[in-house]
Simulated scan of single mutants.
Amino acid sequence: MSRALRAAAAVAALALLTGCAASTAADEPAGETVTIATNLGPADVALLPERVAVLDSTAMETVRDMGITPVAAPLALIPERGFEAWHTDAAIADVGTHREPDFEALAAAEPDLIIGGYRFSDAQDELEGIAPTIDIAASEEHADGWIASLEAQTSALGQIFQAEDEAEDIIAALEQARGEANAAAPESTVFLGVVSGGQIDNGAQRVGRIIEGMSITDVFAGDEGDVHGDSGLSAETIAQANPEWAIILDRDAGTGETDAQPALAVIEGNEALANTAFVTEGRIIVLEADFYRLEGAQSYTRTFQQLAEAFAQS
């Protein structure tokens, strides 16, 4: 079934589920709203929605930390650690993944608001057919960069859920960790890598956001890299550049590949990299396994803390 047909079926299912309640909704007074900036322009959003579907992975931890339990989420994309309550809650509908979204399950959950965007950005039209949908996902298109977009997202969620204090705490922790990492960063060189399927490649497309504003320099700056590790960068080319540091995204760990070799073992076992400065000096930072799945404000806070500690110990 095509996306369009699935979306139409989902809307029809929602109409059946809501029954006569839908016919009386127009007679009820409109609730209070707040206008927020989204990636698609300003949007008026009802305050304190009771039934929220959260699809955007970059918003997951913030929604959780604001005390919101969603009625629907892409559970396969959400790590177990930190989200045990969501994974064991039968009341949370599993809406599949961005590759095969279950629009029918989403409609059956009857959300008042869908937090879409990021991996689900291509499904915006279908989601809008089910319930009001906002795209406030972190974005590299933000005028001040990825981290600023995370802060804007956090502020917007704080307004919607009237959790401004929680939003301020999340942003403050992110700013503090980033400042500490920036202060500790050496005036040196780094390889921003991704390990996927046992292969080492240029991971600058995802990892590059971490060192924005730092004194440490990507040896392949300007080479975008590839999230899935197929840009064609060879280990010999990395060795020739001989960076002092390596910051590595272990994609296999992030996707839950249980039989995959850990990223650190892949790098340390590569003969071409044996004499590089980052291997011989032990200056390899492997990001937490859940970074690839989440990439939200809290993920970056933990990552900046990790970098600050590693840089300070060198």
Rank of each mutant, 00 (worst) to 15 (best):
A138K: 05
I130P: 10
G198W: 03
I147C: 09
D125E: 14
E126S: 11
Q124C: 10
G129K: 05
E141A: 13
L150V: 09
G145M: 04
A204V: 10
H142T: 12
G203A: 12
S155W: 14
L157I: 02
A173R: 07
L157A: 03
I136L: 02
E168R: 06
A172I: 02
I170E: 00
A204F: 12
A152W: 07
W146Y: 14
E151L: 09
G145S: 05
E180Y: 04
T133H: 03
G145I: 08
S196T: 15
D165C: 03
G179F: 12
E151F: 12
V190E: 01
R206M: 15
G203T: 15
A185D: 13
T133M: 04
A167W: 02
G145F: 03
A137N: 06
A173F: 01
H142I: 14
G158F: 04
I136V: 08
G197Q: 08
F161I: 08
Q159N: 11
D169H: 00
E187N: 07
Q124A: 15
A143R: 13
I170M: 00
Q124F: 14
P132H: 00
E164F: 03
L157S: 02
P186E: 02
S139M: 11
R178Y: 14
E175F: 02
E187L: 05
A143S: 13
A204D: 13
T189M: 02
N182S: 15
E168C: 10
S149W: 03
F191L: 01
S196D: 10
A123D: 14
G208C: 12
R178G: 15
I136S: 05
W146L: 04
G203C: 14
G198I: 06
S155N: 13
T133E: 03
H142D: 14
Q205C: 12
A138M: 07
A167T: 04
S188V: 01
L192P: 00
N182V: 15
I130S: 09
I136A: 04
A185Q: 09
A143D: 13
L192K: 07
R209P: 00
A131D: 07
A163P: 11
L127V: 05
E187V: 08
T154P: 09
S155A: 14
G193K: 12
I130M: 12
E164Y: 07
A143T: 15
A163Y: 05
I200M: 04
W146F: 02
S139L: 06
S188D: 10
I211F: 10
E126C: 05
D135R: 00
H142S: 13
A156F: 01
G145L: 02
I130F: 14
G198Q: 05
D144T: 06
G145K: 09
N182Y: 08
E128K: 11
L192V: 07
A177I: 06
I200D: 06
I200W: 07
I211Y: 09
P132F: 01
V194R: 11
I147V: 14
I130G: 05
D125M: 08
Q124L: 13
A152H: 11
P186W: 02
V195C: 01
A123T: 09
E128D: 13
L127I: 04
E141N: 08
E180I: 00
G203L: 13
A172E: 06
A184L: 01
A137Y: 07
T133F: 03
A184S: 05
G129P: 13
F161S: 04
E187P: 08
A185Y: 09
A183Q: 10
A173I: 04
P132A: 00
E128H: 09
